[in-house]
Each structure stands twice: as structure tokens, then as C-alpha cells.
């Protein structure tokens, strides 16, 4: 079942087109990673999904409902953590968490207290004394303690230390195990790699790739490192081999995924003694999409 369905979403401002074509979907029980550089349109997309700003073209539905017209109905089943959390300076963190949970519609004090403990938040302090990380914790605790079907996180860990980041990841995994759906926008690619079932990559207002990590990897090249008994001169002529560097009997090259068979056949005559292949990291994918390398 599809939780969120976004088709050809556009957002025009007077002189700029912030979103050109955002198309992606989030299925039930899935964690969708939403990655892209600053200014690519991640937050704009999320704000449209929340009905906070209005799209100027395309369609976006959550739970089968229009994100602008039925935003209240949608919000009853959703929890959100923005990247930049701003709180009322004269209320304490604990008070704010309660206010947020009330507005979300959940009452679960035990879960709340457990999370406060896990995130090491001092709920008695006024929000004005909190650092960015602590403000983020307030929003995270309120969201994670909420009983929602869809969780939207917009760079939720940008202010957290690695320990807290781990706590967050653990909580997201719990949600995933409970069959909740999660949209996770993030810069921390290792986090996305670990948590997400599928990834959508956005560039200049356009989603240019979506798919599982494996699917994305298929679009790109694996890196091979071979050691042979004879110098593998013949590799130079094989199509599908790129960036070949031969250093004596060692060769390093990028291989097109659909040419592996031909390439391997071509190296066999040189007597392979060692073969390593490295799947591209998300970072390599990301860099390739943005810098073209």
C-alpha cells in the first residue's frame, strides 16, 4: 500500500522554479531516504507535503488524501521533525514536548519519559538555554513518542552527537519494525545507507533517481582491483572498462555492470591471482550524480 504518492510536483516562486519535477512514492513500512545538496528542494518538498506551502503543479497525496486540502486529516496520523528547531525560549523542554504531543494527539507518558532518558535531555531547563542538538532532541522526543503512521524527518541528526545519532537510528529501526513509514531527509549518507530501504535523489528541484540501494548501484560501476601473473595489457581494448590504471601486474578499473562477463573473460588469460570488487558507496553514487564523475 502506498502511503505517500508524489507526482510531478512543482513549486514556482516569482523568478525561480524551486521544484521542477518531484516524483516519488513511499510504501507502507518503508524508510525512504531523501538526499540531495543544500537548496536542491528537499525542505520545499517536505513543506508541500505538510500543506504548509502550496504546490504550483503536480499532485501529492498522503494516505490517499490531498496534502493541501486535507492537511488536518493527514496531520492526525503524522509526526514531523524539522531540521531547524526553534522553541519558545520561556518554556521548558519538558513543557514543550507535552504541548507538541498534545497537538499531535498522542498521550503516552511512559514512552515520553523513556525517550527523555534515552536522549539524555534535561526537561526542566528553559528552551533558551538549549543548544541546537538539545532543541532537536525536544522535537525528536515529541515525534518519536507520538503514535503516528508516517514520520517525516528533515535532517533530524544535524545537531546531534554520534551517541545520540545512534539512539536516533535505533529508534527509527524500531519504528520500521513496527511497520511505520518514514521519510528521512538527510545529509549523513551512512545513516541513509543503514536505515533506508529506498532512496530518492533530488537535484535542482528534480528527483533524478529513485530505487533501492542495489538498484541504484546497478546504474553505476563497480570498482575492480585485480592482480595477475602477466601484465593485463588486453584490458585496454575491452569495452566497459573505464579509468584503467595498470601498475605492473596490478590493475584498477571501473567496470560497467552489464559488461562484467566480457571483462572477466578478457582477464582470464593473464592468470588472475587476486580479485577484489567494491560496490560503490552511496557517497560515490551521490558524487557521481552531482559532479558527473
Amino acid at each position: 500500500m502506498v502511503i505517500a504518492e508524489i507526482k510531478g510536483l512543482q513549486k514556482k516562486y516569482k523568478s525561480t522554479q524551486a521544484l521542477k519535477n518531484v516524483t516519488m512514492e513511499l510504501k507502507r513500512g518503508e524508510v525512504l531516504g531523501f538526499i540531495g545538496p543544500n537548496g536542491a528542494g528537499k525542505s520545499t518538498t517536505i513543506r508541500i507535503l505538510l500543506g504548509i506551502i502550496k504546490s504550483s503543479g503536480g499532485a501529492a497525496k498522503i494516505f490517499g488524501k490531498d496534502v493541501w486540502k486535507d492537511s488536518i486529516e493527514i496531520h492526525k496520523r503524522l509526526a514531523y521533525v524539522p531540521g531547524d528547531v526553534n522553541l519558545w525560549p520561556n518554556l521548558t523542554g519538558g513543557e514543550i514536548i507535552d504541548v507538541f504531543m498534545r497537538m499531535q494527539g498522542t498521550k503516552n507518558d511512559a514512552r515520553r519519559d523513556e525517550l527523555i532518558q534515552k536522549f539524555h535531555l534535561d526537561p526542566k531547563k528553559k528552551a533558551r538555554t538549549y543548544s541546537k542538538g538539545n532543541r532537536q532532541k525536544v522535537a525528536l522526543i515529541a515525534a518519536l513518542a507520538s503514535d503516528a503512521e508516517l514520520y517525516i524527518f528533515d535532517e533530524p541528526t544535524s545537531g546531534l552527537d554520534p551517541l545520540m545519532e545512534a539512539v536516533f537510528q535505533e529508534e527509527v529501526e524500531n519504528l520500521k519494525n513496527q511497520g511505520k513509514s518514514i521519510l528521512l531527509s538527510s545529509h549523513i549518507l551512512s545513516e541513509v545507507e543503514r536505515l533506508c530501504d529506498r532512496v530518492a535523489i533530488i537535484r535542482q528541484g528534480e528527483v533524478i533517481e529513485t530505487g533501492t540501494l542495489d538498484e541504484l548501484r546497478h546504474l553505476t560501476r563497480y570498482q575492480y582491483k585485480v592482480t595477475t601473473r602477466d601484465v593485463p595489457i588486453g584490458l585496454k581494448q575491452v569495452s566497459g572498462v573505464h579509468d584503467l590504471v595498470i601498475n605492473g601486474k596490478e590493475a584498477v578499473f571501473q567496470a560497467d555492470i552489464d559488461q562484467i562477463e566480457t571483462i572477466l573473460e578478457a582477464i582470464m588469460p593473464y592468470h588472475v591471482t587476486k580479485l577484489e570488487s567494491v560496490p560503490p558507496t552511496l557517497e560515490a553514487l551521490f558524487m557521481r550524480h552531482y559532479t558527473g564523475k
Binding site: R47, G51, I52, S71, I72, H75, Y80, P82, V85
Partner: peptide, 15 residues
């Protein structure tokens, strides 16, 4: 401007 409204609006709070 501070972004507080954004968070509030993500709840079932009317425009």
C-alpha cells in the same frame, strides 16, 4: 520567521 509555526502546522492545527 523562527520556524516555530512550521512545526506547529505539522500537527493537526488549522491554517
Amino acid at each position: 520567521d523562527d520556524g516555530t509555526t512550521e512545526l506547529i502546522r505539522s500537527f493537526q492545527v488549522g491554517r
